[in-house]
Nucleic acid binder design. Structure first.
Lengths: 339, 339
DNA sequence: TTGTAGGCGTTATCAG
DNA sequence: CTGATAACGCCTACAA
């Protein structure tokens, strides 16, 4: 590791002082002779000098780094949002430290602290939702912070998320317009701190009520993906089986499709299906899946932009919750006329 | 931002010197009175002191950070390997800076340099393959470096990749055993610096030869995923259409499936299909897709372990290329008896 | 236009 | 057992 080349070495070789080299590096060559400028450039070249960003950071108290904490790296939404964040950061010369909390609040807390110790300039968090005190502290310090995908009620921070309520309404409306009347919602277990899940549920209820459909309790199918096929099978063995399913996310969708496959249920004839999250295989599946996409790229970009605004201390005032509109992807897992 | 609490403050409040506080922080309390220990602990607590990792790094020349450069963040393999890397790093208290090169060598070079300037302790690279000089420099400096997914011939660095040759053989063997005799390979355009692609092609040729099958040139279908359906259609309009397809990766698979769907080709009756990369929808597809999985998690773990070995200067000697065995996932897109 | 000196927050060395 | 003091590599007045 010949990483020993320092500013001093360059200065010596170029016969100038360290400060002059520093000026040069920061492109302040207004008052610098063409001559010395060249000498420094050569010295740098010759030694293969690379400035030590750490030293700079220590002085400037800024690291050109932001921390991102996600709760599930393998989730497609995460990947896509992350991609957009990274891209936005590249434009600003920032880099991204990624940590995976696995939805474990303890871990999340630890990582937030590690990231702060590393002096990241900002934080984008897909929050577990269970570390309100930590979030509050950050908000109080006005540390640049943006929540993504989920928000945390009571914490004043910029948040970027889907219009979940609207997405659920969209699902119901689309199914209803197609003539389907026995609509069931399929979701992971409902827990209060999971805001999007609750919002989707509420949107569903509201849209059903608006249509004058009553909600059979048996048509709220809440189960972990692993046991979902079994639960569905149970429900479908009962009376008044649903003729349309709304899966609130991609994981749930997988459970539904497994059920459909195992029981040789014909779509869309026997059953219509719509879900949130535009999975990559949606249009090569048979039938092609009608889905509700999240604008993941726009969301990631916005999240990054907001941290940067905060870093630049340019935020207008109060934190804002940015709601992104869901996008209907019409395909063929739903007929447009009632059976 | 009340981030002004420094070691000096703690020292003052606890009535000791900075050095003592430092000892404490580094858990060297062997020769420290119970008394002072407690006082320091209290002071830290009271001030909410958080050590500044940047300052520590400057002194110790170590950052507990590794850089990962991938060429496509959205690729599933990338996500999964990344996940494993991150997990392994967590165990060691390391963090991960992720950059996306988009397979652009210029960007890759820039990021490598930025990461080095940030004093990362090691680098894991999914290489574009076109920056040999940069890789060489790193190797020469013995900077901790591991390549993943692709390797770079001529550069002496640990590399973690699939046994691509073996995977292609596996595909051919499985199809041949099922009685299929007109096997075509479907791949993105072949370019020399893309090692895995070439290796898979070679494995295919070798396995075909071994079986005594000759390879009709028209059965090497090389095209970008976007135009693949068209190319396939063209081929299938000709004589001696293939009765089995081997897609060398998931992107290619998507193209094949689109073709299959658009032309209502029945699998496995008219056409058998196998591919590398165990896509998440493989077993909910109809027919369930027989695939060859990469042990992505093990690969990521190994990559991380190898950088750490290098960081700890414990590497045995010469760099090593780690080949991971493909895993056959038998499903139903191939019949076991010949048509 | 360039150089000197001091400091950023830690750790390391060596006295005391 | 504890405390000066000097680095680490860079930036920034202020001097020259």
């Amino acid at each position: 590791m010949l990483k020993k080349v320092t500013m001093a070495d360059v200065a010596k070789l170029a016969n100038v002082s360290k400060s002059t080299v520093s000026q040069y590096l920061n492109k302040r060559y207004e008052y610098m002779s063409e001559e010395t400028r060249k000498r420094i450039a050569e010295a740098i070249e010759e030694l293969g000098y690379q400035p030590n960003v750490i030293a700079r950071s220590l002085k400037q108290k800024t690291t050109a780094t932001i921390g991102v904490i996600v709760f599930n790296m393998l989730h497609m939404l995460t990947t896509q949002v992350l991609h957009a964040i990274e891209e936005e950061c590249q434009k600003r010369g920032f880099q991204v430290i990624v940590s995976n909390s696995g939805d474990d609040p303890e871990k999340e807390k630890t990582y937030i602290e590690m990231l702060l110790a590393k002096q990241v300039d900002g934080l984008i968090v897909f929050p577990t939702g269970k570390n309100e005190d930590v979030y509050q502290r950050l908000a109080a310090e006005r540390f640049p912070l943006v929540f993504v995908d989920r928000m945390v009620p009571g914490v004043e921070a910029d948040s970027v998320l889907l219009d979940n309520f609207g997405a659920a309404e969209m699902a119901v409306d689309y199914l209803a317009t197609g003539g389907y009347d026995r609509i069931a919602i399929v979701t992971p277990p409902l827990v209060a701190h999971n805001v999007p899940r609750m919002e989707r549920m509420e949107g569903f209820r509201a849209a059903m009520a608006k249509r004058g459909f009553d909600i059979d309790d048996r048509n709220v199918i809440a189960a972990d993906p692993a046991v979902l096929p079994r639960e569905l099978k149970k429900r479908f063995a009962e009376s008044h089986r649903p003729n349309a399913l709304f899966a609130i996310n991609d994981l749930t969708l997988m459970g539904v499709l497994r059920f459909v496959r195992e029981n040789a249920i014909r779509m869309p004839d026997e059953l219509a299906l719509i879900n949130i999250d535009d999975v990559p295989f949606a249009d090569i599946y048979t039938p092609a899946l009608t889905t509700i996409a999240q604008p993941t790229f726009a969301m990631g970009k916005k999240a990054a932009e907001q941290v940067f605004l905060q870093i630049d201390r340019k935020r207008s005032g109060k934190p804002h919750v940015f709601r992104f509109s869901p996008i209907l992807k019409e395909r063929t897992s739903i007929r447009r006329e009632k059976a």
